[in-house]
Every structure is written in C-alpha cells, then in structure tokens.
C-alpha cells in the first residue's frame, strides 16, 4: 500500500512539516520543534538548524529555500528566509541562481528574540503596528538595550518592540543588498508590523512558512 511522504524543516523553535498523501494531497503543519522531535515519522528529506546535517536525506537550507522559492517566481527575485536564529537569502537573475548569503548563527535580531520580547513584556503580536522610527539592530543586543531604556522611560512596550522590528526589517533590506523586491519566507510573513516596515524600503511578497519544505519535496 502506498504511504504518505513526509518532509520536515526543523528550525530552532518551530518545525514545518509537509505530508504528501498517496493521492497527491499536500498537508502542511507546524509544531514546536521539541514536540516534533517525538514524532515517529520517516522523512524523505530533512532540512533546518536542528536536523542531522550528516544524514543522507539532509538538504542544505539555502538550497531548499532556492528551490522552494523558485516555484513561486521564475524571474529576477530575492527570496529571504528570516528564522528563529538566522537569516538567509538567495537571488535569481534571468531564472538562474546568482547570489546568496547566510548569517547562520546570530539570534540577536531574529524571530526567537521577538517571541521572547513579546512574552517578557506580555504583548500580543497583533498589537504591534508599524512605526516610522527604528532602533539600530546591527547588534541586536544594543537594540534590546534601547527597548529597555525607552520602556523604563514610559514608552509603551508594543511601540518599542515595533521599533525593534522595523530595525530588523531595515537590516534584512541591507543584508539582501537593497533589492527592489523581496519575497519573504518564514514566520515573519505572519508579522504585519515586519511586513509593513519592510515595505518602506521595497516591494514585499510574503511566501509563507513552508517554502523550504516545498523546496525539499521537489526533485533535484
């Protein structure tokens, strides 16, 4: 009997899973990585920061991103994946891969930091609104200091976090070498404050959280 095929992008905080049933139906799901680890599933291919990079079915995250983003757009584009602890992008020119970068390990100004800030200040992500001001987050720790200083002076924490997110968006724009358009992959697609902040600098197209698993499911 045919079985479903599973693909996983196991990030530091969240794991994104794609199931393709024997009938070709695609089912997407997201779980905390600590939970997803307990699943007894056999994956066709794996990617993500917490996977075994020496495994035979492992695929480089940038390769998964490039493949997954290419099915959305064939022409010139930059696809940016902003994760819990890293940021990576690829650029296609005339439908051919031409440039990329990956800051693989600094979590000071990425998704996990935002999640911690929201919990620490008890702020709902929906309450974050675009602010024209931004904190410099070239070093995320200095950015956090700005939040603490301003909140202690009476600034609403949701405004302070929004300024921090604007800083992350500006950083992402610079990291990708100031393109006209950025296609966003990852959890930040669901963060309206981030998307609105990035729109100040370029056209933005959110691709959702499952770009990497879509890339995994493509044949090489």
């Amino acid at each position: 009997m045919n079985k479903s095929k599973f693909y996983i992008d196991a990030g530091t905080t969240w794991s994104k899973i794609l199931e393709i049933t024997p009938f070709g139906e695609r089912k997407y799901s997201v779980y905390p990585t600590c939970e997803a680890r307990k699943f007894n599933l056999e994956y066709e291919k794996i990617t993500g920061h917490t996977t075994d990079k020496a495994a035979k079915n492992y695929e480089n995250e940038v390769v998964s991103l490039a493949k997954g983003a290419k099915i959305h757009l064939e022409n010139n584009f930059v696809a940016l994946d902003l994760g819990s602890r890293d940021i990576k992008w690829v650029k296609y020119k005339n439908a051919k891969f031409c440039d990329m970068d990956w800051n693989s390990s600094c979590a000071a100004a990425t998704g996990a930091t935002i999640e911690m800030l929201l919990k620490f200040y008890d702020v709902e992500v929906e309450s974050l609104k675009y602010t024209d001001e931004k904190y410099p987050v070239t070093c995320g720790i200095f950015g956090l200091e700005k939040i603490m200083d301003d909140v202690s002076k009476g600034l609403d924490p949701s405004v302070a976090i929004s300024k921090f997110i604007h800083g992350i968006a500006y950083n992402a724009y610079n990291f990708t070498k100031n393109p006209d358009k950025i296609c966003i992959s990852g959890g930040f697609c669901e963060n309206k404050c981030f998307i609105d902040s990035l729109k100040k600098y370029c056209e933005v197209l959110p691709l959702g959280r499952f770009v990497l698993v879509d890339g995994l499911a493509l044949q090489a």
Binding site: N60, V63, F97, D101, W102, S104, S105
Partner: peptide
C-alpha cells in the same frame, strides 16, 4: 570555515 561558508559553496555548486 563556518557552516554558512560551507552552505554558500554547496548552494553555489548545486544551484549553478
């Protein structure tokens, strides 16, 4: 080399 460096080269070789 960092993981990032390995990944960049690997991606270039795979995608070009």
């Amino acid at each position: 080399p960092s993981n990032s460096a390995y990944a960049k080269i690997e991606a270039f070789l795979r995608l070009r």
